[in-house]
Design a binder for these strands. Structure first.
Length: 561
RNA sequence: GCGCCUGUAGCUCAGCUGGACAGAGCAACGGACUUCUAAUCCGUGGGUCGCAGGUUCGAAUCCUGCCAGGCGUACCA
């Protein structure tokens, strides 16, 4: 239940009626009522809600905006609403001042909804798949993957909260060229460890983790592949390492609070013939042609800059071909909507992916691709260039170890996907105590402490909001705190709509800030029983909201710190 | 060259899809613990919103052109 949203809608409706009534009575002239906004003004002095209707109507009605404002106010029927007062202000806004009581019902709603406060059924139970991370299983997870993991998981959480049925999926790129290179690199390490001359190929993977992997392998299987057929050897080593890598990726992500419902293997698409089949389908529809011995998809038909190869000269399908089959597979599985989270280095892939979806006859708007800018890592004041090939990167595990899961997630989610974020590792470590995440968690812990104290002082159970006189919550901080609490449902909806969860951490910081101010200014446990009861209700509602937001972020809500 | 993203306080970033005087955290400075956790609070300083035009009653937000940075522009993924 979204009280702010409901009031907004109600005011909008009354305004519409007032304008029409004014028109009927000849006070205003306009053809059709233009679209206008009813919003919460930034400035406290501008009332609880405000509309720009007067300004919007000015040119059509041929009257000054302020005069229109007065006319609308005159025709407003406010009976049965929370509206106490209306005034024309500034260039012609109408500000609405509500009766004080409107906020108190928010506390009742929070208490009653508890874990469900902030949730809605906007998605109406429709099925959505969020595919994210999907890192190559040839190495460890780095900072970019960490950002993607935090972002994707939170988007999934937000969609769930907004009433979608969400599936989290990881696409395993266990086929293609890179797997060849992976196997060659493993082979080189294997041979090296057994005292042979061998070199990791230029285009291979140089990370030291592969040495470790081969050490594990040798422990199990010894040197029995030393003289084996190289093709077989690479296959065995590759399969072993892949399994180990995927397992460690899964563990790292779980350690970061991210659990996938489905791990989807690319190679199954090749083995089942799905790639071939989808190529055939596109060919029949006339979107495939041959040139220079390769097969091309006509992505330029869908606004891409150039056509794209789907089957190479050597007869092997490209990554793109498999991706088309994968996306067809997603829709075949019955997802109403599909969301991909990709790093900025893949943005060139967006147009042709959407093109392929369209070519297959699906509505391309059922696919959202979120492009996330890359993470630039600073250490000792210098940029650390990350690359899996050179093996130089900070891993997700190291990040969690040094900065902590909660701080890392909070930090990543706080930034919009669009922002190219600079992650200063030294600073993150150094400031871990001053990180905003602790500020929020501390607010939660403080509340829990108050509630514990209350019990210790003989309060047997928390007072229920509907049985408590809340009107004594009348200081400015108290009202602001309730006002902020009232914002959560609208915020979650809007984050789900825009797929931009970065406003949640900011909200949490603001809410925690208001609570801390309240804490300094207002004593909860006190002589005045009525006041104490009302403040316990307020504090408990704040706790519920903080916890719910932290849950959405995948960040712990500690009861003690 | 072309395409996508970005440019807001010393630093890292918000700015709720065009609203009424531009915000937060960190950093700097000055205050507040005999009272529910000082991982907190209160206060001070700090900005040509990259630059120049345009649209609008109204622009950090939309359009155009420059400037700067990141990414992409493979029969790699």
């Amino acid at each position: 239940m979204d009280i702010v949203g409901n009031i907004q809608k109600e005011i909008e409706q009354r305004l519409r009626e007032a304008a029409l009534k004014a028109k009927e009575e000849g006070d205003l002239s306009f053809e059709e009522l233009p679209s206008f906004t009813v919003e919460v003004p930034k400035e406290k002095g501008h009332g609880d809600f405000a509309t720009n209707l007067g300004i919007i109507l000015a040119s059509q009605a041929k009257k000054p905006p302020r005069e229109i404002g007065e006319i609308i106010i005159k025709h407003m029927d406010t009976s049965g609403t929370w509206i106490k007062d209306m005034e024309v202000a500034g260039p012609g806004f109408i500000n609405f001042i509500l009766k004080a009581g409107w906020l108190y019902q928010v506390l009742e709603v929070v208490e009653r909804s508890d874990k469900k406060y902030g949730r809605s059924n906007m998605g109406m139970g429709k099925k959505v798949q969020v595919e994210f991370v999907s890192a190559n299983p040839t190495g460890l997870l780095h900072m970019g993957n960490a950002r993607g993991a935090a972002l994707g998981d939170t988007i999934a959480n937000v969609l769930e909260a907004a009433g979608w049925e969400v599936t989290r999926e990881f696409y395993i790129n266990d086929a293609g060229n890179q797997i060849e290179n992976f196997a060659k690199s493993l082979e080189a390490r294997y041979l090296q460890l057994l005292g042979r001359e061998a070199e990791v190929p230029e285009e291979g993977y140089h990370g030291e983790d592969l040495i470790e992997t081969m050490r594990n392998f040798i422990e199990l299987e010894g040197d029995k592949y030393l003289e084996a057929d190289p093709g077989l050897r690479r296959k065995v080593l590759g399969e072993y390492a892949l399994k180990e890598k995927i397992k460690s990726i899964r563990e790292s992500l779980e350690n970061f609070g991210v659990t996938f419902d489905i791990w989807f293997s690319e190679s199954t698409l090749h083995e089942s013939g799905a790639v071939e089949a989808v190529m055939e389908e596109l060919r029949e529809k006339g979107y495939i042609y041959e040139k220079d011995g390769a097969l091309w998809f006509k992505s330029t038909l869908f606004g891409d800059k150039k056509d794209e190869v789907v089957v190479r000269q050597n007869g092997l399908p490209t990554y793109f071909a498999a991706d088309i089959a994968y996306h067809k597979n997603k829709f075949d599985r019955g997802f109403d909507r599909v969301i991909n989270i990709w790093g900025a280095d893949h943005h060139g892939h967006v147009a042709r992916m959407k093109g392929a979806i369209e070519a297959l006859g699906y509505d391309k708007d059922r696919l959202d691709i979120i492009i996330m800018q890359l993470v630039r890592l600073f250490k000792d004041g210098e940029i650390l260039r990350m690359s899996k090939r050179t093996g130089q990167y900070i891993t997700l595990d190291e990040l969690v170890e040094e900065v902590g899961k909660d701080a890392a997630r909070f930090f990543f989610i706080m930034r919009a996907a669009d922002s190219h974020l600079d992650f200063d590792l030294d600073l993150a470590k150094k400031e871990s105590n001053e990180n905003p995440v602790y500020y929020v968690q501390y607010a939660h812990a403080r509340i829990c402490s108050i509630l514990r104290q209350a019990m210790a002082r003989g309060v047997e159970r928390l007072p229920r909001a509907f049985k408590t006189d809340l009107t004594c919550l009348d200081s400015e901080v108290e009202l602001e705190l309730i006002r902020k609490i009232a914002d959560l449902p609208g915020l979650v909806k809007s984050c789900a709509e825009t797929l931009e969860p970065h406003r949640l951490p900011h909200y949490a910081i603001e809410l925690a800030g208001l609570f801390h101010s309240f804490y300094t200014e207002c004593r909860v446990l006190c002589e005045d029983e009525d006041k104490q009861a009302a403040r316990l209700v307020l504090v408990n509602a704040t706790r519920i909201v903080l916890r719910n937001v932290l849950n959405l972020l995948g960040v712990a809500a500690p009861e003690r710190m």
